[in-house]
Amino acid sequence: MSEAASCHDGHPVGHDDVQAARIMVVDDEPANLKLLSLILRSEGYRHIELVQDPREVLGRYRAARPDLILLDLNMPHLDGHDVLAQLAALADPLAPPVVVLTAQSGEEVLVRALQGGATDFLTKPYNRRELLARVCNTLMAHRGRRLLHDQNSLLETLVQQRTQQLRQSQLDIVQRLGRASEFRDNETGQHIMRMSHASALLAARLGWPPEACELVLNASPMHDVGKIGIPDGILLKPGPLTADEREVMQTHTLIGAQILHGAGNELLDMAREIALSHHERWDGTGYPHGLAGEAIPAAARIVAITDVFDALTSERPYKKAWAVDDAVRYMLDNAGKHFDPTMLHCFVTLVPELEQIRHRFAEPEHNAVRLLADVH
């Protein structure tokens, strides 16, 4: 075995390790402290913390952060078992090993010390070479544990970074799919932003946890992604649709669900639910499956409200924007028919916040007109 992996005649592994090791010695007898200090220093250990009063161990431990503790058992005020209990209560994931020094050889005492957190023990009077060998071996084991902990922490950080990258990639896909549906419809990107933020706001007011609110924020922009598969002659028709054309238009929910099917992650799974079911109605008269009440996924019920509200209060080529009060009145008239009544009544309490969202994501037309006027 190489020198880097073993102790020779009690010598610690590597000169740098000797200099770096921090050892705390706890014993109420000054003579014992002096003897242990001399033995350790003779082997090159320089960072030695001597503690005569066991009541000082915790404070000195926090300040010194030792790599090893040599602990006497029989002491006044607090015995070694009490000190072990105090150290265990800290729940330090990198707690240093504790080698118990005791004149007692009874099995019960030693088992109690080991169960209390001691790593090893030495019986007084101890042999110098045995002491140094145990100190060296214990420090080596602790160093290995710290290296493993550091590697695990690094791996955990890398996993978190990779997970975040995957989530960002999924979000990019979601946003691009949402944008693709915009280009095929009369809807605007600002509509997508308003209804998605309104959906997250409503979810939060309903008591959803933050991670679920973030999911609905990012999944709701794909509610109409299925319109990619609707023929232009129907999708962009300026006038009313015939019964047959309306039936084709309604298939955008099924197309959207097919596009998003089988993703196997929370974001796209919720997006699929929303795409499939946001035209279902509370009373069962919606499409594509005629679901009713709470059989309709909750995220789809939220989007049904926020999508209609923004459509009513926004100007379109085929209609003027409704006043907010008129839109709210119309939607309340349809509570329990089109909309989940509990969700809708919660939604109407959010009108001030919804107005802030509408202002934040206002259509850019007026700004464009002003810019053209400045140019000319």
Rank of each mutant, 00 (worst) to 15 (best):
I69A: 02
L235Y: 02
S37N: 15
L202F: 01
G286K: 10
L122M: 07
V13R: 12
L267F: 03
T306Q: 05
E280I: 10
L101F: 02
I192Q: 09
S105Y: 00
I173K: 14
T285F: 00
L147D: 10
H345Y: 10
E108Y: 01
I192C: 03
L131F: 11
P210Q: 11
Q161P: 02
Q164R: 15
T242N: 08
M195F: 13
L171H: 13
S220C: 06
R194H: 05
Q170F: 05
T123Q: 09
I48F: 03
E182N: 13
E315R: 15
A4G: 00
A304D: 06
C346E: 15
Q151A: 12
A300R: 04
T102V: 06
G59K: 11
S199M: 03
A323L: 12
T102Q: 07
S169K: 14
A63N: 10
H15T: 13
A64K: 07
A311D: 07
G59R: 13
A373I: 14
N334Y: 05
Q164Y: 05
R146D: 00
G264W: 06
M195Q: 13
L71N: 07
N265F: 02
D9G: 07
Q168L: 10
A335E: 08
M331K: 11
M343T: 12
E182L: 13
Q190D: 13
H338E: 11
G256S: 08
L267I: 09
R112G: 05
H338K: 15
A5F: 02
E49H: 13
G106P: 04
P54A: 08
Y126N: 01
A321R: 12
G262N: 11
L70Y: 02
D53V: 10
N74C: 00
V225H: 05
L177H: 10
M222G: 03
N32S: 14
R370N: 12
D185W: 01
K227D: 02
V13W: 00
M75A: 01
N218T: 11
I39C: 02
V324R: 10
G117Q: 04
V324I: 15
I305L: 05
R146N: 07
G178F: 04
R55S: 13
E187A: 12
M249Q: 12
L101P: 03
